[in-house]
Amino acid sequence: MNSLFNKLLLICFYYILAGCVVCYGAPSTFKPSIKKIGIIMPIEHKALLEISEGFQETLKVLYSGPIKFKVGNAQGDINLQRAIISQMHDANYDLVVPIATSVVQMTTAMISNQSILGLAADVTEKKDNLAVVNDEIDKEKIIAFIHKVYPKLKNISLVYSSSDKIFPEAAQVETACKHRHIKLHSLMIQNLSDLYSASQAIPQDTEAVFILKDCLVASGINTLVQLTKKRKIPLITSDDGTVQQGASFAVGVSEKDIGIEGAKLAAQILQGVSPGKLSMVKLTKPTIFINLSALKYLDQDLAPIKSAAKAFHYPLVIK
């Protein structure tokens, strides 16, 4: 019985091995005219998926030729991320689209002869083969909006992670709050498991909880939703995904818009424009995403948010 099992295992193994060899030897399925575009995501996350979807949908409309997309998800593994970039490099993709700062940095370090379009990245280095869409909204604008909605706001808590993108943004929030004489209580987490403890450490006199566009904190948003519901204080976020999950309202860029702006650049690159000649696109105008049921639960009127949005000329999206 054991011998039969071993034989079967051997047959299966050789079958897989033969399959691999055949696949390597087979000619490429891509026709030469098809543009190959590789999208690299560092981790599985709704916000990143929306960026990718917005990019793909818009580029299909803007570029008339045939396009083939491949999305590589590194699942938070740096080795896998390297392998994905290396594969896209060796397969001569016409455009490599890394999402998030660290992925753009790695791609730029590994690829020098193919076009790169970085999305949602804060990269200042100039390279001939690199174009960037930066989604960082001035935190002063966000705090100004929150202050307009809650003019009597004195204490606010910020929960943030130690990720590359968020860390400097948290410092900007602190400065913006200082300018407006708002006392900011900052809580940094390094792992998702820290979030519960951090949420319990939010002071009792806090009048609102604020989070940035932070993948790690957004993953555990339910913890903060429960806490803010219990204390009857608003949870203000920076992306529409968290509003759908229970936050009161968000001041931020729509993830899809990042993809759309990226697609506009990608269309130019595919038509032959050098990425280095395209100026960095900065998304500066926030959208206000509102969760009506969450506001109702807090007995909060929609009017102050509406009037603040009108004053700042920010578009409103009611969920």
């Binding site: 938070g76 593994d77 740096i78 390297r82 660290s102 940095q105 790695m106 730029t108 370090a109 590994m110 130690s162 990720s163 590359d164 390094q190």
Partner: peptide, 16 residues
Amino acid sequence: TAQTIGYADIGMSYGM
């Protein structure tokens, strides 16, 4: 690794 990938990151050792 930092020199070949172009950055040092606080989360780069995940699962190493």
